[in-house]
Design a protein around this nucleic acid. Structure first.
Length: 442
DNA sequence: CGTAGTGAGTGTTAGCACGT
DNA sequence: ACGTGCTAACACTCACTACG
């Protein structure tokens, strides 16, 4: 995992006396976090004066990467009960689930004000002299600390927290200050490089996702052959289409079918953003209808869409026989010259690109925006010759597969980079590798 | 009496349900 | 069909309470 070359080790090791630390370099020592830092120091007396040089950090501005977005919130007027109090160069970490598990925490070296107050859900470490603050920060990022902390969290389900007790008594190994400084400089350099590489790959992923949208948009409105003569479709969301294509209103190619089941029993289907799924109504969880006999029938191959909320809803072709809410729109394709999957692609585009949204109506201030049946029926879709539709669908699928593979590759690379980063941090602050001056400069 | 620990509350999104 | 209400999950923040 350490990229092919052996990193140097220390000359002599000794038993640390701590089971999960194992052997440590001979000249290192072991201590507890409470001896290296004041844990959750109370705010200074005369606090009101501090407010002139203080900022407030809600949980949301502290990220897992250790970055903090300063200065996006207003200055604080009063110190509320429960605020955590810290100052520049303190180390903070989230204590509540899932923020702790996500590694939300930071070393506040570039805090613009001297003093700060934060969400109640932080632990604060005010590092004592003899220790490099960032060395302590890196300690809180190690697997040892995170895994142990996570296993010792207490609280009711969904609201677990890391106890001060655990943080205070966490035992770790450390070298003399000068060596800590070198380790910190090495880790700073390496983690910055790794983080930059991750950021680039994440950006590439975003571009690839955007590319998927462009692929489908172009394919269903312009076809595959850029050299064919074009004509104006007369429909604003479609624009120009190949001259040999048609546009038709949905009412001439589909039919809304509302068939009330009239009895209970069939599988209840749920239209989610990941497709139509069978809903578990026996578990008693989630929203349940009083009377499923009023639900409408969906058969395999039927289209079903949640047209009640164009922002959160979605559409799919059902793979199941079952029933859905009578409020949903179930429809079938009636026109022979149209391919189901091509039509589904257009519908999914309609949601993803918010095209239906333009034709919706409702109470938008409350986030309700429906797609009325009349607007649905009069919605225009582009229709190439059927053979071309199949080709288009196949091509889109091929290109999407390629893009998806690219995304998967990038994701796995990001995973490896993150793994590499934690391995480096773990190895450096437990003395498994020795940081030499040339490693810091290079 | 202060503060650490804890349950309650909040805003937002998703996925519906229900009455008219 | 339409307007609106409900529920759960998530990701927090608020504020009470018990304890040393």
């Amino acid at each position: 995992m350490l990229s092919g070359f052996e990193l140097p080790r220390y000359d002599d090791y000794k038993e640390s006396g701590v089971e999960w630390l194992g052997r440590i370099p001979a000249e290192w020592e072991v201590t507890r976090l409470k001896f290296s830092s004041r844990i959750n120091p109370p705010p200074r007396i005369g606090v009101e004066d501090l407010l002139n040089d203080a900022c407030f950090l809600p949980m949301e501005v502290v990220h897992s990467s250790g970055k903090v977005e300063y200065g996006i919130q207003k200055p604080i007027k009063e110190i509320k009960q429960g605020f955590t109090s810290f100052q520049r160069n303190d180390v903070i970490m989230a204590k509540i689930t899932p923020c702790f598990e996500n590694g939300k925490g930071a070393y506040l070296d570039s805090m613009p004000t001297k003093y700060g107050f934060g969400s109640t859900e932080f632990h604060v470490l005010r590092v004592r002299s003899g220790f490099n603050q960032k060395y302590i920060y890196y300690l809180t990022k190690t697997d040892l600390f995170m895994n142990l902390g996570e296993s010792l969290m207490t609280g009711s389900a969904g609201q677990k927290r890391v106890q001060t007790e655990f943080v205070a008594n966490f035992r770790f190994a450390f070298p003399v200050l000068a060596v800590q400084d070198g380790i910190v400089r090495f880790l700073d350099k390496k983690t910055t490089q790794i983080d930059e590489a991750i950021a680039i790959k994440e950006q590439q992923i975003a571009l690839l996702k955007e590319r998927k949208q462009i692929i489908i948009q172009k394919a269903v409105t312009q076809g595959l052959d850029p050299t064919v003569p074009m004509k104006d479709s007369g429909v604003d969301w479609i624009g120009e289409i190949p001259a040999h294509w048609e546009v038709k209103r949905l009412k001439y190619v589909t039919k809304i079918v509302k068939r009330i089941a009239g009895y209970e029993g069939p599988d209840v289907l749920s239209i989610t953003q990941k497709g139509i799924k069978i809903k578990d109504i026996d578990s008693g969880e989630g929203q349940l209808a009083m009377d499923y006999s009023k639900y409408q029938v969906v058969e395999v191959g039927d289209f079903a869409m949640n047209h009640m909320d164009l922002l959160t809803g979605y559409v799919d072709i059902s793979k199941y026989n079952g029933v859905v809410s009578p409020d949903y729109r179930v429809f079938i394709r009636t026109y022979d010259g149209l391919d189901d999957e091509f039509l589904l692609a257009i519908f999914q585009l309609g949601y993803q690109q918010k095209i239906f949204y333009r034709y919706g109506q409702g109470v938008s201030l409350l986030g309700r925006w429906r797609f009325p049946a009349e607007n649905f029926n009069n919605f225009f879709v582009p229709i190439p010759p059927k053979e071309e539709q199949k080709l288009i669908f196949r091509r889109v699928k091929e290109e999407w597969d390629k893009v998806d593979k690219g995304i998967a590759l990038l994701l796995s690379q990001i995973g490896k980079l993150k793994e590499y980063k934690t391995t480096l941090i773990n190895s450096a602050v437990t003395g498994k590798i020795r940081i030499t001056p040339d490693m810091v400069e290079a």
